[in-house]
């Protein structure tokens, strides 16, 4: 049972091999003296510090190569993969993109991305409900993204767990769709609190659903006043140009003058 590493292949974890529990360790205390004393060890240690270290390592890699890394989070079915497909088809020739796809099972999403001509690797988390910095570290080693590119990291469809795990990204983008409730931000506040951008997808369906756009934005701003919004339809392409402008601008900002 390891939800720490989703790589699912043989590799050496170098200095991080202690991720895998070794319960069969043995060592001798020498003299067989059974006298024991109680000892309190004050740790004050962050439970996620290992993830934080690896996230910083990823961040350093992105910084050094001028890579703009975007962590895409949402509930299942909000259109993350379709957003990527459309983005890659429409501006894939202007900017260099790479994609890490996170899902519990299958390589279906990576296949969809590869079909657009963009290089993608799939990370299967097995029973794990989120990507962590360690999985992303291995995925980067596989993918070898170019300098001055944009790296999309599509997280596992889940609005709760991925919020806790920093992957080293430059920006966290939360996606919701108008077929979900406009109360989603206050039902799942953590993801909206930790994101910088909110994409509201499937706007072409607004005439058919009871979704209240103003209410949804109002709810999201209650949690995070700094959120920046894009209203898009990945089916019709409506509103996508503003998202593309934002991507181009953020990538350009990384390039040294």
């Amino acid at each position: 049972m390891c939800v720490t590493c989703g790589c699912g292949r043989d590799h050496v974890h170098d200095d991080y091999d202690h991720h895998h529990h070794n319960h069969s360790h043995s060592h001798s205390h020498g003299n067989g003296n059974n006298d024991v004393q109680d000892k309190l060890i004050n740790l004050e240690k962050d439970v996620l510090y290992e993830n934080a270290l690896l996230a910083q390592r990823n961040r350093g890699y992105f910084d050094a190569k001028n890579i703009f890394a975007v962590n895409l989070v949402s509930s299942p079915g909000s259109g993350k993969t379709m957003l990527l497909e459309r983005t890659l088809k429409e501006i894939g020739s202007e900017l260099k993109f790479f994609v890490i796809e996170g899902d519990q099972q299958t390589s279906l999403d990576a296949d969809r991305i590869n079909a657009t001509g963009t290089k993608a690797v799939q990370v299967n988390t097995g029973k794990g409900c989120h990507l962590d910095a360690h999985m992303v570290l291995h995925a980067i080693q596989d993918l070898k993204p170019d300098e001055n590119s944009i790296l999309f990291i599509e997280n596992v469809g889940n609005l709760v767990c991925p919020s806790m795990f920093d992957l080293g990204e430059n920006e966290r983008v939360v996606i919701m769709s108008v077929t979900e409730g406009d109360d989603k931000p206050i039902k799942y506040p953590d993801m909206f609190h930790t994101s910088g951008v909110c994409i509201i997808n499937k706007t072409d369906l607004l005439p058919y659903v009871s979704f209240d756009m103003d209410k949804a934005i109002e709810n999201a701003v209650k949690i995070n006043p700094k959120l920046q919004f894009f209203q898009v339809s990945c089916t019709t392409g409506e509103g996508m140009d503003k998202w593309y402008d934002w991507l181009k601008q953020r990538q350009a900002e990384l390039n040294p003058a």
Binding site: N33, Q37, I41
Partner: peptide, 14 residues
């Protein structure tokens, strides 16, 4: 989200 402390039984080395 942190571990404040642990209590262990330390063997006394004589």
């Amino acid at each position: 989200l942190k571990i404040k402390s642990i209590r262990i039984e330390e063997k006394l080395v004589t």
